[in-house]
Write a protein that binds this DNA or RNA. Structure first.
Lengths: 304, 304
DNA sequence: CCGACGATGTAGCGTCGCTGCATGGACGTC
DNA sequence: GACGTCCATGCAGCGACGCTACATCGTCGG
């Protein structure tokens, strides 16, 4: 019962295939397949089954993968217990964030972490579809993700994934300053009928919020453009090519744009840190995560 | 961070040395030493330190060994989660017991287990000093041990050792049937002044109880013989070579001996099953342990 | 129907951990 | 105080295990 093979099994589950898991683990697909075969032989029952040209875990494999999480956590706790003696809560932590979250949180995080000393943070921006966020935790230690306010929990929340809330960010309606509504201090969904929208790509977190706003106005929204990058969307709004939903703390930098709070509709997104349970046990990771939480509190406190 | 090396570290702690650990793990001392060296190198701090010609764990090593227990438990849970699918709560379980406990519990345990099917129980009798019982759990899955009634807990109880109470057995005073006290239905400590005792060897569980009885009588007990085997002691009592303290359920088979309950002194021993926390997770072991608990209840219920 | 992708076997190789033996230090004994 | 014994540790040699590279088979899209 090799822990490396158990780790591999978990990765195959989260990545959804041998090839993807191999890429994450820096192995060849053959090695991954052999590990699964060995594990299955030892278990006495098949852990995976072919489905199409891919594969998925059997019930037994799923149960074992769940148990493998606890094994990984225990091993990481062991490492942490040693780190308490060497005094070394040092090392490098990989942090990723979606575009606007990265812009908001990563710079202050880096300055705070620099004061810690010995802790190196490697950042990357990862903008992926809603349901692809959890899988990122295999390549990155801390994943800053977002989801619509009342939306579904993350897949496998609880035992498979640790979720740390960072902040709740309201989504405001961004209009050009020459827009008739620009003088209002807040707008209702009904005020927005007939507007052209600049939305995000289908499957991305903010998309469902726009649908909710549209439902409040009674008409289907006319989506003219799909832009994932908020700063681009903001520039397009300023140029009068449509209106958009922009997160309050992130947007609002552009002088030609006014952000109007939405009344009557609860529009917002939750920004959370996603970690694998075993990664969450690492002392360095905990330190960085604490700083990230502090940064989030700072950012919301100053702006709200 | 190899789990085999962690297992080795635990064994070195419980067995108190490299050589003893190597014997238990079926390895050469050299291999054990190399594993410790590798682990220590990876940890960055020494995990062991020489003391005399042996060694002991450092504080860091002790902490890591504690964490290693959780790792082993998690791994064993993973195995158990698989066993739930193969339906195989089968295999062999090694059970050891001290002399009198073995005589009382093992025969009925074996008959009950035979009915289970697929479970093989290997018995052995292990009579060791009080503080040597926990270390037996490295060689044997279930260790039936005993300790004086109000005595100290087992070393490392809690996280390092799982303790399952089986029964409490009163210790009676065994006298030959021609003895002046033989007619009494119970005796007090004061009645026993001046008697010659047949005791157990120093360091064995019942020894401290005799000291307690002696303290009640006010005089130091005159110990004529030291016999660990109760059936031998019983025969010696019958032949008039002294009196003894015998466990009620175990002793009393000899026609020439009368067992007299002790009044005023709480004399007894606790019989308990000792398991390593990881072993306790194995499904086969749990099944056998359940049967053992049932046997203990049966035995005391019939005799009390 | 063909091309591409994904998973799985097989040969070959490197590496890691074990055994066997030799060394050095500590305790008990004569 | 010297010797023998026991224990832990270092080093050479060997075996085994797991990886890469390559080939094969099945499946899905064009």
């Amino acid at each position: 019962m090799d822990v490396r093979a158990l780790e591999t099994l978990r990765t195959v589950r989260t990545q959804g295939g041998v090839a993807a898991a191999a890429a994450v683990l820096h192995l060849t697909p053959s090695a991954v397949s052999q590990q699964l075969a060995a594990l299955s032989r030892e278990a006495g029952v098949p852990l995976t089954e072919r489905v199409g040209r891919g594969l998925r875990l059997t019930a037994a494999g799923d149960a074992l993968a769940d148990a493998a999480v606890d094994v990984a956590v225990a091993v990481e706790r062991a490492r942490a217990s040693l780190a308490a003696f060497t005094g070394a809560a040092e090392g490098t932590v990989r942090v990723s964030a979606f575009q606007s979250g990265a812009r908001l949180l990563l710079p202050p995080l880096l300055t705070r972490v620099r004061a810690l000393g010995g802790v190196r943070v490697e950042c990357s921006d990862e903008d992926v579809a809603q349901d692809a966020f959890p899988a990122l935790t295999d390549r990155v230690d801390v994943v800053v993700a977002h989801r619509p306010d009342g939306g579904a929990e993350w897949a496998g929340d609880g035992s498979r994934l640790r979720v740390v809330p960072l902040l709740r960010e309201p989504l405001d309606v961004a209009v050009p300053r020459e827009h008739p509504l620009a003088g209002r201090d807040r707008v209702r969904a009904g005020d927005l009928v007939g507007e052209e929208w600049i939305a995000v790509r289908e499957g991305f977190p903010v998309a469902t919020v726009l649908a909710a706003v549209a439902a409040g106005s009674g008409a289907a929204p006319r989506i003219a453009h799909r832009i994932n990058d908020f700063s681009i969307a903001e520039a397009m709004v300023a140029a009068g090519h449509g209106i958009s939903l922009l997160p309050r703390f992130t947007g609002g930098g552009h002088p030609g744009v006014r952000l109007l709070p939405l009344a009557g509709v609860r529009a917002g997104r939750r920004v959370e840190a996603l970690l694998r349970p075993d990664t969450a046990e690492r002392l360095v990771v905990r330190r960085v995560l604490d700083e990230l939480v502090a940064v989030a509190a700072e950012v919301t406190g100053a702006s709200a």
